[in-house]
Simulated assay, not measured.
Amino acid sequence: MNLVLRGFAGLALGLPLVLPLPAVAQTRSKPVAARSAKPAVSVAPTSAAPIQAPSPDEPISPSDSALRVVDWVGVSKDNHALPYVIVDKVNAAMFLFDSTGKPIAAVPVLVGIAPGDEATPGVGSKTLAEIGPAEKTTPAGRYLAKFGLAFRKERILWVDYATSVAIHPIPGDVGKAEGRRERMLSPTPDDNRITFGCINVPRAFYSKSLRPLFQKKGGYVYVLPDTRPIEEVFPRLRVHALQNSGLYR
């Protein structure tokens, strides 16, 4: 077990590596999806599964797919000495690492309403009203994310500026009917698909953990797929698996 996976063992056991957030969601195992609205823009209420009451604090454990990416990045140093996050859309979770690969925190997230791993061509130039339900996806892939200005001169972490996908807290002017905070704190990921494609994270995590690590030089964001095979999104996983098996040197 490499050092990164040992660190994740600490996360799973609830050691100090897990960011202490109120009612952090339980270990996630059910599918999720959502595309967050563009920063500081309210969105019309969306019908979805009933909101569940927040559950007691429980650490978020990485899925097998997340662990594969963790191991690959840790061994190959694919992050190029920059901090990085792994976003598991299916389980509505984010795992933050510093530039050395040390696990820092694991938190629940909200993602795009529609399942899917591709952004519709031209979606980044559309207004929110012009984006159709099937276009509200959080695209999968590897991105070099950096802070930049959004619509109201707020600095947010842009994952893919061309498609208007960013990581940011829940916008303050989003309608209460969407219940974004309740969705984030619910015990399963089933109701975490509610955004236009952006990735919503807890505000305390954003300001105290994510922003301090990413604000100077940026960092990498690995968004796991929810419809495509993971090896199609991250082809180097195949080589890494062969190297681990001893069949490829």
Score class of each variant (00 low, 15 high):
residue 1 M to N: 08
residue 2 N to V: 04
residue 2 N to E: 03
residue 4 V to N: 03
residue 6 R to G: 06
residue 7 G to T: 02
residue 10 G to P: 00
residue 11 L to K: 03
residue 14 G to M: 13
residue 15 L to R: 13
residue 16 P to M: 05
residue 17 L to A: 14
residue 21 L to H: 01
residue 23 A to F: 10
residue 23 A to Y: 12
residue 23 A to K: 08
residue 23 A to Q: 13
residue 25 A to Q: 07
residue 26 Q to K: 10
residue 31 P to E: 10
residue 32 V to F: 11
residue 33 A to F: 07
residue 33 A to Y: 04
residue 35 R to V: 08
residue 36 S to G: 15
residue 37 A to Q: 04
residue 40 A to I: 03
residue 41 V to P: 00
residue 46 T to K: 13
residue 47 S to H: 14
residue 48 A to L: 07
residue 50 P to V: 09
residue 51 I to S: 05
residue 53 A to I: 13
residue 53 A to D: 12
residue 53 A to W: 01
residue 53 A to K: 13
residue 54 P to V: 10
residue 56 P to F: 06
residue 56 P to V: 14
residue 57 D to C: 02
residue 57 D to M: 12
residue 67 L to D: 01
residue 70 V to N: 00
residue 74 G to T: 14
residue 76 S to I: 02
residue 76 S to W: 06
residue 76 S to P: 01
residue 80 H to G: 00
residue 84 Y to T: 15
residue 88 D to E: 15
residue 92 A to H: 08
residue 94 M to W: 00
residue 95 F to N: 01
residue 99 S to I: 01
residue 104 I to K: 15
residue 105 A to E: 08
residue 105 A to W: 12
residue 106 A to L: 02
residue 114 A to Q: 06
residue 115 P to D: 05
residue 116 G to A: 04
residue 120 T to P: 01
residue 123 V to G: 00
residue 125 S to I: 05
residue 127 T to Y: 07
residue 127 T to A: 08
residue 133 P to F: 04
residue 136 K to C: 01
residue 140 A to K: 01
residue 142 R to S: 10
residue 142 R to A: 15
residue 144 L to A: 11
residue 147 F to R: 09
residue 149 L to W: 12
residue 155 R to M: 06
residue 155 R to N: 14
residue 156 I to N: 06
residue 158 W to I: 09
residue 160 D to N: 11
residue 160 D to W: 01
residue 163 T to C: 02
residue 167 I to C: 03
residue 168 H to C: 06
residue 170 I to N: 02
residue 171 P to N: 09
residue 183 R to K: 04
residue 183 R to V: 03
residue 184 M to C: 08
residue 185 L to A: 11
residue 187 P to S: 08
residue 188 T to N: 05
residue 189 P to K: 08
residue 194 I to F: 02
residue 194 I to Q: 09
residue 195 T to A: 05
residue 198 C to A: 00
residue 200 N to L: 12
residue 202 P to A: 15
residue 203 R to F: 00
residue 204 A to C: 05
residue 204 A to V: 08
residue 209 S to E: 10
residue 211 R to D: 11
residue 212 P to A: 07
residue 213 L to D: 09
residue 213 L to E: 03
residue 216 K to A: 13
residue 221 V to G: 01
residue 221 V to D: 02
residue 223 V to N: 11
residue 226 D to M: 03
residue 226 D to I: 08
residue 228 R to Y: 11
residue 228 R to P: 01
residue 231 E to Q: 12
residue 235 P to A: 05
residue 236 R to N: 06
residue 237 L to S: 09
residue 238 R to V: 13
residue 238 R to D: 14
residue 241 A to K: 12
residue 242 L to T: 01
residue 244 N to C: 04
residue 244 N to S: 04
residue 245 S to H: 03
residue 246 G to N: 06
residue 247 L to G: 00
